[in-house]
């Protein structure tokens, strides 16, 4: 493989990994810091993708909304707002429920969102999907590689901004309350904190970040359809977060890259080694192995690659010896 094709491959790989990393950061806000088990990650990812596609895409025949052709940055902003609003609505109804009811209801919401994407064709064009979505800077050069390098830069900036913002949030007094709720809800309540409101805020922030991830995906691939938004995505993001280190934002980014490398690497390996007749079986084996990986991770290394830092405030942090890191789940 010559240098240019290696670079092209690497660029492509890193862009997709960035999409996952952003979603992972969003989930880290909800699960890692606040202990909210959102099984509907893919739903908010889809809302972001469709919002950006509708805002930036061309005019499609027979659709209610569209043809705005707005700049991609507006699409991204729209995705963040749409997913955030959806998170507000969903959170308002579900966050009052018990924690495992939250898991069940977000699972239901993701399925409902996929049904809307599939059947509400006046908005989403159903299974035909939305196509010809613009990619920023794609007119600058004739080379796909240069286009993708520009897009990778956009991804890097997005990750940077999200990381910076989330770090600011979780190290503020507000972030401390979130961790307090995660560790002991009753104690937080006893200290006079409005647990529901904090949870709702964290949930909305996380959903908005997932929406951004969806927009990054939509405008990179240029075509989205309901098949892009299946429950396995949620599962992948959870594995990434747990492998990377739940409760650690750098870990979330790292987990996205590492797990996506394993995932796509194993896919390439299967495609390269095995004869085409058993490729479909091989795809199932891959999912079995990934599922096994998650279960083993939960059993033997629940804290992930990068443990959560024990932070008291923006300025002060506990030395590593004190109290140690914590495990994957709230109160583990």
């Amino acid at each position: 493989m010559d240098f240019l094709s290696l670079l092209s491959f690497l660029t492509f790989f890193l862009i997709v990994a960035s999409v996952y990393s952003v979603a992972c950061l969003g989930l880290n806000m909800q699960w890692g810091f606040t202990g909210l088990f959102n099984v509907g990650v893919v739903g908010f990812f889809a809302i972001g993708a469709y919002a950006s596609a509708i805002l930036t895409g061309p005019d499609y025949p027979d659709t209610l909304l569209g043809g705005f052709g707005l700049p991609v940055i507006v699409g991204f902003a729209g995705a963040v707002i749409a997913a955030g609003l959806a998170g507000l609505l969903v959170g308002f109804v579900t966050l009052r429920l018990r924690e495992d009811f939250l898991a069940i209801s977000t699972f239901g919401i993701a399925i409902s969102i996929q049904l809307v994407a599939l059947n509400f064709s006046r908005l989403t064009r159903g299974p035909d999907g939305l196509y010809s979505l613009p990619k920023p800077f794609s007119g600058v050069s004739t080379s796909v590689l240069v286009d993708n390098l520009f897009y990778l830069a956009i991804c890097a900036v997005s990750i940077g901004v999200v990381y910076w913002g989330l770090e600011r949030m979780v190290r503020s007094p507000w972030g401390r309350v979130l961790r307090a709720i995660r560790e002991d809800e009753t104690a937080a309540l006893a200290l006079g904190k409005n647990v529901f409101r904090y949870r709702l805020q964290a949930f909305v922030v996380g959903c908005a970040v997932m929406g951004l991830s969806g927009a990054l995906y939509a405008n990179f691939v240029g075509f989205i359809s309901p098949q892009d938004f299946i429950p396995i995505f949620t599962f992948q993001v959870f594995i990434m977060l747990i492998v990377g280190g739940s409760g650690n934002n750098l870990g979330a980014i790292l987990g996205g890259v590492v797990v996506w490398a394993l995932w796509s690497g194993s896919g390439a390996l299967i495609a390269g080694i095995l004869p085409p007749t058993i490729q479909t079986q091989a795809a199932s084996v891959r999912i079995v192995l990934i599922g096994l990986g998650l279960v083993l991770m939960l059993l033997y290394r629940p804290a992930g690659i990068l443990r959560e830092k024990r932070i008291v405030s923006q300025e002060a942090r506990l030395p590593d010896g004190v109290a140690g890191g914590r495990a994957a789940g709230p109160g583990d």
């Binding site: 495992d100 084996v285 939960l298 709230p330």
Partner: peptide, 26 residues
Amino acid sequence: NKNATRITLIMAAFGLSLMGRSLITL
């Protein structure tokens, strides 16, 4: 035995669910 929270159990079940479906397909 490790006193895992119910959410950890749910997550393991989530992984097993995916494995189960793939094994049937296999």
